[in-house]
């Protein structure tokens, strides 16, 4: 690992990550007060710039052109979307970004598994890596697809709840399948597509099942409940980032992701309480369908 910052002690990177984590915490605290919120956002953004900048300089990047292109494309699209959005369309854009974050975490965990298998072989995958990757894949893919549906509903593409037969049984069933595929990843990471064991097929199967689950859970929920769903999915993208941190053994991913996950869950609860609903009622609205005036 010889990047541009070659020569610095290995702990220097961890130290910079610690500084970034502190900036996230201070920024998040300021975000909760009206007068300091805008400054809080800037502080958290500076933490992000610091963490990403040092990471790019620290590691030996074998294909700097490809990485640079990816960063430029992403920054361009993100800037364009954020600057062109109308104020009324902001919630669905936040939902969309949120899905991208979850999707990125799911891709990273998968890429890391592929990378580890490619360099060290399937036998050397640790239970921590596969377990954390399974959690990342499940939460990340649910967040990605759930957020796309939620953003679409907020955008008015399809804001009515769509119900299907034996809804909750289907959701529980698919969730069960996802858990089984996750367990297959833990026990038999080379399962399926045997000649191409380095693909870690169970992981990608898990992403497919989890994506379906994300769609099935959000589709029956009405447009009026979408803010709560976005808050919950936001917590999901944070938790996905945190468990990616377990896969990559990276402290700042764990701290920042968990901060988002925990604050998102609490916010979800606060928002449910202010609507006089329980989260279960929002997610599995079957019982409360008559109360849900759509």
């Amino acid at each position: 690992m010889a990047g541009l910052l070659d020569g610095l002690p290995p702990d220097a990177l961890s130290f910079v990550y610690l500084v970034a984590a502190v900036l996230f915490i201070v920024g998040l605290r300021r975000l909760t007060h009206p007068r300091t919120a805008a400054r809080g956002n800037l502080i958290s953004a500076s933490g992000m710039a610091l963490a990403v900048g040092v990471t790019v300089l620290w590691f030996e990047i074998l294909s700097p052109l490809v990485l640079g292109a990816a960063l430029l494309v992403g920054a361009g699209i993100g800037t364009w979307l954020a600057l062109s959005v109308e104020t009324t369309d902001m919630p669905q854009l936040v939902g969309l970004f949120n899905g991208f974050g979850g999707g990125a975490s799911a891709l990273v965990a998968g890429a890391e598994l592929v990378d580890q298998v490619g360099t060290a072989g399937v036998a050397d995958l640790t239970l921590t890596a596969t377990g954390a990757a399974a959690v990342t894949g499940l939460i990340g893919a649910v967040t990605f697809c759930g957020s796309l549906v939620a953003a679409g509903k907020l955008h008015g593409i399809y804001d009515r709840p769509i119900h299907y037969p034996v809804e909750n049984a289907v959701k529980v069933g698919i969730a069960g399948v996802a858990v089984l595929v996750g367990l297959a990843l833990l026990t038999q990471p080379a399962l399926g597509l045997l000649p191409m064991g380095e693909l870690v097929a169970p992981y990608w199967a898990l992403l497919v099942v989890a994506s379906l689950l994300g769609v099935l859970v959000v589709v029956p929920i009405g447009g009026a409940d979408m803010p709560v769903v976005i808050a919950l999915l936001n917590a999901g993208s944070g938790l996905a980032a945190a468990s990616t941190g377990f896969v990559l053994n990276n402290s700042v991913l764990i701290v920042a992701g968990t901060l988002v996950g925990a604050s998102g869950l609490i916010l979800t609860r606060i928002m449910c309480r202010s609507m006089n609903r329980s989260l279960a009622n929002v997610l599995f609205g079957g019982y409360g369908r008559s109360e849900t005036a759509d």
């Binding site: 996230f24 998040l28 958290s44 990047i61 993208s237 996905a240 896969v247 992701g257 988002v260 998102g264």
Partner: peptide, 15 residues
């Protein structure tokens, strides 16, 4: 704002 923080996964992506 927290959603932007969860983009910290970018660090993992870069590596």
């Amino acid at each position: 704002g927290t959603n932007a923080i969860s983009g910290i996964t970018l660090i993992g992506s870069v590596v």
